[in-house]
Structures are given as C-alpha cells and as structure tokens.
C-alpha cells in the first residue's frame, strides 16, 4: 500500500478522518516542545500533565481559530500560556506557577524561526556535546543531579558544598550550557 501525496486521495478513506489524523500528527510533532515549556513554567508534574491535556482539548475545540499560515506550536503554547495565567489568577497566589514576566520569556525561548519539528532534538544534541566540554566538577554536578537524581542537601553533600553554593553552581552551569548550546546551534545554521 503506497501513500498518496495528495490529501484528496484520502477522500475514499473517509474525509472526516483526515482532520483527526492531522491533529494527532501536529500534536505529536509539537507536543514535546510544549511539554518543555510547561515543565519550565510549572514544577509540579501532575499540574504539567493537567495543563498539557487541557491545552490539547482547548486547541481541538478552537481549531477553527487556528491560522494555518502560522506555527501550530506557537499557537499551542499561547493556549497553554493563557491556561497557566488563568490558573494563577484562580489560585490568587504565586503557588507553583511561574511569574508572568518569566512566562513571557519562556515563550520567547521556545520560539523558533524555522521548522519546529526537530528543533528539540537538535537542541538536545547540542546540549550533550556541551556537557562533554564542561569542566569535571561541573559535569559531575550535572550527572549527580540529572542522571542520579540527587537534589538539594543530598546533592550538596555529595559535592562537598553548602546548599546555597550548590544552587549557585547549578545556576552557573545551566547558564553556561545554554550559551554553549545556543552558539552551537547558530554555528550549525551558519548564522
């Protein structure tokens, strides 16, 4: 069975099926990046999952509002952003949700000029290379935190630092990795 490049060819298979399949394909393509956005905005994984599912349901209900000339990922993150802000207003407190100005910056970080589909993979590839180039102590800290799952005082103890110093170290390492990753991606794109 050979795929036909024209969508009209699916008419015999049921034209009503196409939008469902298309929506699923779009979600599979853009969902992982939305998960990164939500994960950065919301610490609680349960709330992340709730918001992710809610965003998809809203997107489906409002699919008629989507401008197909624009990025589906951007539109999806806009829905998620509004859900976060609405939940934040409903909570009436800071809670586990990120502040609005940080949320805006996160949205900007997720933006990509070109195709989004493989961007996350490209970023992770670049990040892995950057990890290899970290000094030993920084790489060790990253491994203990992200691979071995040590956090807070436990991580500090293993690194032989105070909790505050460990927090600062991780902040510096993440900033350094972000810069490295960005430079690598730019170099790859020939910017």
């Amino acid at each position: 069975m050979q795929p036909d490049p024209e969508p009209e060819a699916t008419a015999d298979a049921g034209p009503d099926t196409v939008p469902h399949a298309l929506f699923e394909a779009l979600v599979r393509e853009h969902g992982p990046r939305l998960r990164v956005f939500l994960g950065a905005a919301v610490r609680d994984p349960l709330i992340q999952d709730e918001l992710f599912q809610e965003a998809l349901l809203v997107a489906w209900r409002r699919i008629g509002d989507f401008d197909p000339e624009r990025s589906f990922g951007h539109w999806l993150r806009g829905i998620a952003r509004n859900l976060i802000l609405a939940r934040r207003r409903a909570d009436g407190r800071r809670g586990p949700l990120v502040a609005p100005d940080v949320l805006e910056e996160l949205g900007a970080l997720c933006e990509v000029d070109g195709p989004e589909g493989e961007r996350l993979g490209e970023e992770l590839d670049a990040l892995r290379v950057c990890l290899d180039h970290l000094p030993d102590d920084a790489r060790s800290a990253v491994r203990l935190h992200y691979t071995d799952g040590h956090r807070g005082p436990e991580l500090a103890e293993r690194l032989g630092r105070s909790v505050e110093a460990t927090k600062k170290l991780m902040q510096r390492v993440r900033a350094r990795l972000f810069d490295c990753m960005t430079m690598r991606l730019e170099a790859r794109e020939g910017i």
Partner: peptide
Amino acid sequence: AIERYTDQLLERT
C-alpha cells in the same frame, strides 16, 4: 527563564 528552560532540556538529555 533560561535557567528553567535549560533545566528542562537537561532532564531530557
């Protein structure tokens, strides 16, 4: 935002 974003990417390496 950079801190949070990079943290999420590191979680996925």
